[in-house]
Design a protein around this nucleic acid. Sequence first.
DNA 1: CTGAAATCTCAAAGCGTTTTAAAATCTGCC
DNA 2: GGCAGATTTTAAAACGCTTTGAGATTTCAG
Lengths: 342, 342
Amino acid sequence: MNLKELSAKLNLSQTTVSRALNGYPEVKEETRRRVLDAAERYNYLPNARAKGLATGRSHAIGHVIPISSKHEMVNPIFGDFIAGAGETYSKCGYEMLISVVEDEQAEEAYRSLKRRGVVDGVIVHGPRQDDPRIPLLQDLDLPFVVHGRASGLAPDYSWLDVNNRRSFQRATEFLLDLGHRRIALLNGLEAMDFAARRRAGYELALTERGINPDPGFEISGEMTEAMGYRGALELLDRPMPPTAFLVSSMISALGVRRALEERGLRMGADVSVITHDDALSYFTTGADVPLFTSTRSSVRDAGRQVAQMLIDRISMPDAPPQQVLLEAELMVGRSTGPAPAD
Amino acid sequence: MNLKELSAKLNLSQTTVSRALNGYPEVKEETRRRVLDAAERYNYLPNARAKGLATGRSHAIGHVIPISSKHEMVNPIFGDFIAGAGETYSKCGYEMLISVVEDEQAEEAYRSLKRRGVVDGVIVHGPRQDDPRIPLLQDLDLPFVVHGRASGLAPDYSWLDVNNRRSFQRATEFLLDLGHRRIALLNGLEAMDFAARRRAGYELALTERGINPDPGFEISGEMTEAMGYRGALELLDRPMPPTAFLVSSMISALGVRRALEERGLRMGADVSVITHDDALSYFTTGADVPLFTSTRSSVRDAGRQVAQMLIDRISMPDAPPQQVLLEAELMVGRSTGPAPAD
DNA sequence: CTGAAATCTCAAAGCGTTTTAAAATCTGCC
DNA sequence: GGCAGATTTTAAAACGCTTTGAGATTTCAG
C-alpha cells in the first residue's frame, strides 16, 4: 500500500493525504480523521527512502566505531551507550546506523556517510587529543556531537563529557585522606583524551599534598581484565609496592582483584582500590554495599543525552553548540580502607 | 555533485554514466575509465536514498534489540556480536541499523522496518522457545537469520547456533571425570532457548552416569555478576554444598569467584568452576593458561557468519534456508581440579 | 447579492537514481 | 556505397514521497 493507492481509496489527492498525515493545518479536521483511520486500517506507512528523497533528510544518525586491526577490542562501554542513545532515537523517530570500520578508514567512512546522504548527523566516540575527526566534520558540514572532548581544539563544537579530571582528583584525595601515599594509576590508553584528563586529576591531587607523582606508578593500556591483572602484579612485586590502585575501568579492576587474590592480599584491607564505574547494566551489584569504591557515572544516560543533543542540533542548525559536563559520583564500597601501617 | 551534474561535465547521458559506474557491460571500456576517473576527481558517490528508491532495496540490515523495561539489561555479548557483523557489512557494502525497543514493541518494530522499506533483512537475537518472531517474519516475508535457535518450531528457517547442549554435556562429563558429584548449574533465563539446551546437556550427562539432577542445584536468571555471586553463596551455604559450578557466562563466573573468595574457598582446589566463554574481546586473558576452564566459542565470529548468511539469503531468496551449528571448544584453565575428598 | 477573504483540495514538478525502449553510431562484408 | 548486425548512447519513464502554485469551494461583511 503506497500513498497513491491510499489516496485512490479515499478519493482524495496525494497532496491532501500527505498533508493530513503530516499534520499540516490546511486540511479539515474531519478529512484528517478519515485519512488517519484509513492509514491505520490499510496498514500504511510512508516509504522511508521516498520520504527521505523528497525531504532531503534521512532521519538516521550514524555511529562510526573504529576497530583497530592490532587489538580487536570492542569497548565494553559500547553496548550500554548504544542502548541509551537508541532509546532516544526510538522516541524521536530516528534510526541508528552503526559503521564498524578499520581505524584508518574512519575518515573515509564519515565522508561517505555524508556524500551518500545516509545520515543527518553523527556521534563521535572515544575522542583523542587534537582529534582530527572534529575539524573534518566541521569541514564536511555534517552535524555531530562528541561523547567526550578533545583537548587542544577550539571548543566551538558540541560535546558531553564526564568531569574526568575532577573525579580522579577527588578519588585520589579520598585515598590520601585514608593515609595512602603510594597510589598507582592503571589508566586507559594515553592517546585517549579521557585518560589524559584522569591522569591530570590524579597528579594534581598528589602534588597539592606535596607528593611527587612517580611515573613508575602510572600504567596505561587497553582496559581489559588482563591489563588490570598484569599491571597490578607488576607493581605489587616491586620492593615498595603501592598500597592503593586507581583504576580506569571496572573490567580492569576485576583484573586487579584477581592479582590481589593471587598474592594473598585482601582488597580493602591490605590494598585499596578505586575504579571508575560506567554503571554498565550487567555489572550492577544490586542494593547492597558495592564491591568497589568508585567514581560513578552512567554511560547509558550519557548515550540518551548525547543523542538528544544531536537531534536538537539537527533541527536547529543555527543554535550555538552545546556543552554538557557531568559530575561523577564518588561511591564508597568495600574496596577501600585506611592505609596499612608500614 | 549528483549524477546529472557529473554526466553534464562528461558530455554523456545519465544512463551511460550510471551504467559505467555500476559495471554494466554495454559501455565501452574507454568511456568507463573516463567516467570512473571523473567520479573520483569530483568526489561523486550516488545518493543512497535515490538509489534505494530506484532499485527497491535499502542495502541495510536491521537488528532489533528488545530491552525489557523491568531489568534494563544490555546483553554484554551484544558489543562483540555487533562488531563481528559490522565487519561483514562493511566488506559487503551494507549498512547496519539498530533499533532499541521496549520488549512488547519488538513485533511492531519489525513490521515498521518492513513496511517503510528501511531494511532488506533482519537478524533475530536471543530467540526463546517457540519464539513468535519467527513466524511473524516468515509471514512478513522479510528475510532473516536467527542467532541461536527456537525449539518447538519447524526448522525451515536459517539459523546459526552453538551446540549448547553438547558443550554443556561435555563440560559436565569433564567435572564428573574429575570426581565431582554435586554439580550446580547457574544458567541464563529459562525462557531463552540456549539456556534450555544447556540445561538439557547438563542433565543428560548426569543421568547417563546415574546421578539424579537435583532441581535445587539449578538456578537461572539474568546473567549478571550479582547473579553469579548470590547464586553461589546461596548454594555454598547449604549443608551439602556443590563441589563444582557450571556457569552460563563469564560475567556470572566472576561473581561466583567473588563468592568463593568471600567464603575462603580456593577456586580450582576446593571448588571447581566451568563457564561458557563467548571470547569477548575485553576478557581475553592473553597467552597464558586461562583463569577459567570454559566452553569457548567466539560470538564475534558468530556475528561475522550470521551477517554473511543473511546477505547471501537476500541475494538468493530462493535458496533453501541454511543452518550452521558451531561446536564450542573445551578449554582447560585453572578453575577446575579433582573433587575434594568428602 | 456581490466580492473578498478564508478554507480546502488538486495537478504537477521536483528529489537523484535505475532501467526500458529506442535511436545513433560503428563495423565489416558484399 | 549500402546494409545487416553489433555496439554504444540516449531520452524518458519509473520509484514514492513532499511541496508549490493555483484552482475550487465556503464564509461572511457590506
